[in-house]
Design a protein around this nucleic acid. Sequence first.
DNA 1: ATCATACTCGAACAGGATGTTCGAAAACAG
DNA 2: CTGTTTTCGAACATCCTGTTCGAGTATGAT
Lengths: 197, 197
Amino acid sequence: MDEGDRRVRRTRRALRDALIGLTLEKGYAHITVQEILDRADVVRSTFYAHHRDKDSLLFSCFDDVFAELARTLEAAVPGAPLGDPARLAEILYQHAGTNRRVYRALCGRQGGPHVFRHLQRRLGDLLREHLRPYLAAADCELPADLVADYYANAALGLLSWWVDHDFPHDPAWLAQSCRTLVVPGVLTALGQASPAS
Amino acid sequence: MDEGDRRVRRTRRALRDALIGLTLEKGYAHITVQEILDRADVVRSTFYAHHRDKDSLLFSCFDDVFAELARTLEAAVPGAPLGDPARLAEILYQHAGTNRRVYRALCGRQGGPHVFRHLQRRLGDLLREHLRPYLAAADCELPADLVADYYANAALGLLSWWVDHDFPHDPAWLAQSCRTLVVPGVLTALGQASPAS
DNA sequence: ATCATACTCGAACAGGATGTTCGAAAACAG
DNA sequence: CTGTTTTCGAACATCCTGTTCGAGTATGAT
């Protein structure tokens, strides 16, 4: 379990690739541990030395991607005050655009509901956190959680559409759609009429 | 398999209740067929005479609820032209408000991702169908599917929030939130500035 | 270059869940 | 009342899971 060991990195990567590949091919729900083992060329006992079960592996893969997204997001939107609420979504879409394979597994039809729902939860938390100061500034009549949930679900809905339609146009276009569709609602809730930027 | 037979109705109902109850208690994913059998007091072979597997039972239960919703929706919004896009959501929320137990299983955290994602798909289809004429009227720059997906995801996101927070306020309040949050985006996409009603 | 470490391999194992089968008994509709 | 349909009960093969353990081998540190 030492991350600095090359053997560990190799097996972890092999398992990760096998899981994503199989997920894309036949859907997460229908994957068996044995199939992951076969494709990754890893023996049973080794698998269980790293992960408790299939879900554990999934979450592990998931966390990698998610941590990277969080880092990118933190880098692009350094502090609390952000002028454009859709900027968060835009970074998400860019990240998805450069990691299509993984996102296909996470958000696509093939990926299975399990993964998508998990992404929805975690992404909701992340967006909620980033939107908090934005929502706290203006005191709005709607619960902040509700607005945050709305934003997360709507933004993720667009992403889901994008993935399922095989990434048409580009991230900027999708972000613009986000500005058109989901941002007005947030601004309305905050009592503002027109976008800030 | 004759629906007119009382025995069939009894077992179907018993299985349905058992599934929903267990889903609420421990989550759909962790339910075993044996547990359903025990609670429903139905023998193994009888179960498989009705459903291919656990998912089959789930979808069966799901279809019941969904058919009823579709009927209600068709009754309340008879034809194509509808003045208020949020009306669809309002009917959905009312339906959820009067079937809380089932919706808790479908949308709640406990229900598991499998169910929610399925609901998301089906509800998306249904809303898409009902929104089609509305979107076709105005030719908007965004793909109609994208707008429909946005609406479905956003409206369902609000529902999910409502369920997870144990149904605060009432359906009308949630529908009003829908008007505040998600409708402006649709109107913006259509090139309109203010609500029709 | 050597060495102790700890990771992987391979094989085996018990346990549990799944889906199927079939004859006997019971409940149903007409 | 009678023929039909459904349920019961029990058994069964099969698959998948998660665990164990000793022997071999790659690895990082010295």
